[in-house]
């Protein structure tokens, strides 16, 4: 089953396309990082997925075929929006009660235990909490709904490094416990590398990478060698990005095989940050899996 599936999904605000012809299948059961520069369309994609906005063209389904915003989709998806908006005038306890009043499944004990462990006073007004604590409240409330898919839009962007670390730890514990699918957008690459196992790179409104992180690491190599021989090397290999420094050149290539390289060349594994940055610097390159598998095919695989 796919957590989110889109086909030629587009969203236009006035004359600007926030998202254009985005075709994507995000598998369920993964922790998916949605990365990309500012204004790449990350927030637009997430808001389309949770039903806050409607698309201008194309299709999007969630949780294996539900329309975003439909009762099933609303029930199964918990959303933590950018800057974690909460009612500042409500106490933490009333915030819990408010969400409990708006949901079908609710784990009051779990939410209270989580907040208690973080030392967040339940009677305090949300507006009196620090930014990190507010983000934790938003996360605890989202997790207490026991969603099938948890969507988070830049949840740590405004937090200090310590709060950021704590937030990610809470998230990872919950994922380990519940096995919830997560879709997390961020432009903080270093945070994502340790938590995510699937990566979607959006750039200028379209998808540039959509693949598992292990697959990405396995299919990308960094080759370093003298500038004079670069043409001979690149002729045989798909180069994502090339960077020259003095007489040395550094290539990120997309390949699964080891290649025979001229003497003086180095063949090394890459890391996610370098892969993402290379693709961002070469907007025409893309690393997409084949055609998105439809639901039926996947379920067959899963039952098999």
């Amino acid at each position: 089953m796919n957590a989110i599936e889109t086909h030629c999904l587009s969203k236009r605000y006035g004359r600007t396309w926030a998202l254009r012809d985005c075709t994507l299948a995000i598998p369920a059961g993964r922790v998916v990082a949605l990365v990309g520069p500012n204004r790449a369309g990350k927030t637009t994609l997430l808001q389309l997925a949770v039903g806050l906005i409607g698309q201008s063209a194309g299709e999007i389904t969630v949780l294996g075929g539900a329309a975003p915003g439909s009762p099933d989709a609303l029930d199964g998806i918990a959303f933590v929006a950018q800057d974690t908006p909460l009612y500042q005038y409500l106490s933490v306890a009333d915030t819990l009660r408010l969400v409990r009043s708006l949901t079908n499944s609710w784990d009051e004990a779990g939410a209270r235990a989580r907040l208690d462990a973080l030392g967040i006073p339940i009677k305090r007004k949300v507006g009196e909490l620090s930014g990190g604590q507010q983000a934790q409240v938003a996360l605890a409330v989202a997790l207490a709904r026991h969603p099938r898919l948890l969507v988070l839009d830049e949840p740590v962007a405004e937090l200090d490094p310590l709060a950021r670390h704590d937030f990610m730890s809470t998230l990872m514990e919950a994922v380990a416990e519940d096995g919830v699918s997560v879709l997390l957008s961020s432009h903080v690459l270093s945070e994502l590398e340790r938590v995510c196992d699937y990566l979607v790179l959006l750039s200028r409104g379209s998808v540039q990478i959509a693949d598992g992180t292990d697959e990405l690491l396995a299919t990308h190599r960094v080759l370093t060698g003298p500038v004079e021989q670069v043409n001979a090397v690149t002729a045989a290999l798909p180069v994502v990005h090339e960077r020259r420094a003095g007489r040395q050149t550094r290539l990120l290539v997309r390949t699964t095989n080891r290649h025979m390289l001229p003497a003086g060349w180095l063949d090394e594994p890459s890391n996610l940050e370098e892969i993402v940055l290379s693709y961002l610097r070469s907007p025409d390159a893309s690393a997409l899996p084949g055609p998105a598998p439809s639901d039926r095919d996947t379920s067959k695989v899963m039952t098999a």
Partner: peptide
């Protein structure tokens, strides 16, 4: 205040709300 993103993404639709 942006709280509609919180209020309208719970299990009750914004029309019911």
């Amino acid at each position: 205040s942006g709280t509609f993103r919180f209020a309208w993404t719970q299990a009750r639709s914004r029309v019911q709300w």
